[in-house]
């Protein structure tokens, strides 16, 4: 993944660059909006991280300029904590998410992953979460299973996952939301397209069916009391 980092503070920038590089991103770092506009002329980026407080042209103007030039990559805005209205403005100007500085690296990585997944879903019509893939065009779910050393296959295998129509709707909604939790009320609304009368208990049924299908593959469906459900990677075991 090629990532554009626009940040004028050298210490902050080198820290972020190191962290993102370690996480597997190819990071291009520039210190000003003008340079950012130059490099985006030549090269394409998958995602951009832009600090608001840049010299001359600020991060909001830069985001707007990038959008005006037709760049569709996800943009994550970095803002100082005391800039109260920045985040609202940032989202208005075409940014996709924002983070308040100072932040913790794992959080930034999680946000970037979510943004990338969303932008891929918008362009490729395939949703991914861990080993799970949902092909929206073919309406097919599949799961990647580790290659069996005994079988001698070097490549991992994709194994289809059977989902009923309502299970598909629930799954699709959960994947679109991930890693954020899915609101149970909204899930109900998504399902009412199928059934006029659907009870929260019915949602529970689909969730438990999905759980049974996903858990063997290391994907959990965590219930969040009073709110809804969240797709999670189950580590270990």
């Amino acid at each position: 993944m090629r990532l554009l980092l626009v940040e004028d503070d050298v210490l902050v920038a080198s820290g972020i660059k190191l962290g993102l590089s370690n996480a597997g991103y190819a990071v291009d770092w520039v210190g000003s909006a003008e340079r950012a506009l130059e490099v985006t002329q030549k090269d394409g980026f998958d995602i951009a991280v832009i600090d608001i407080g840049l010299p001359a042209i600020d991060g909001l103007q830069l985001t707007q300029a990038l959008r005006d030039q037709g760049h569709t990559m996800p943009v994550l805005i970095l803002t100082a904590r005391d800039a109260l209205h920045d985040r609202v403005q940032g989202l208005d100007k075409g940014a996709d998410d924002y983070m308040v500085k100072p932040f913790e690296l794992p959080e930034l990585l999680a946000r970037l992953r979510a943004l990338l997944r969303r932008s891929q879903a918008a362009t490729s019509s395939v949703l991914r979460f861990g080993p799970l893939e949902l092909d929206m065009a073919l309406r097919q779910a599949s799961i990647q299973v580790p290659a069996q050393p005994l079988a001698g296959g070097a490549a991992a295998l994709r194994q289809p996952l059977e989902l009923g129509p309502r299970e598909w709707t629930v799954m699709e909604y959960l994947m679109l939301q991930a890693p954020k939790p899915a609101n149970k009320d909204k899930l109900l609304q998504a399902l009412t397209g199928w059934d006029k009368e659907i009870t929260p208990n019915a949602v529970e049924v689909y969730i438990s069916r999905l759980r049974a299908k996903l858990e063997p593959h290391g994907i959990g469906l965590r219930s969040i009391r009073g709110f809804g459900y969240r797709l999670e990677r189950v580590v270990g075991d």
Binding site: A110, K180, P181, N183, R222, I224, R225, G226, F227, R230, E232
Partner: peptide, 23 residues
Amino acid sequence: CEDVLEEYLDRAGARQIDLGLEA
């Protein structure tokens, strides 16, 4: 409440705390 709940889900999960909502 929903926003703040979301924000703390990971931290609560890491500590195996059941973070819930009655709103």
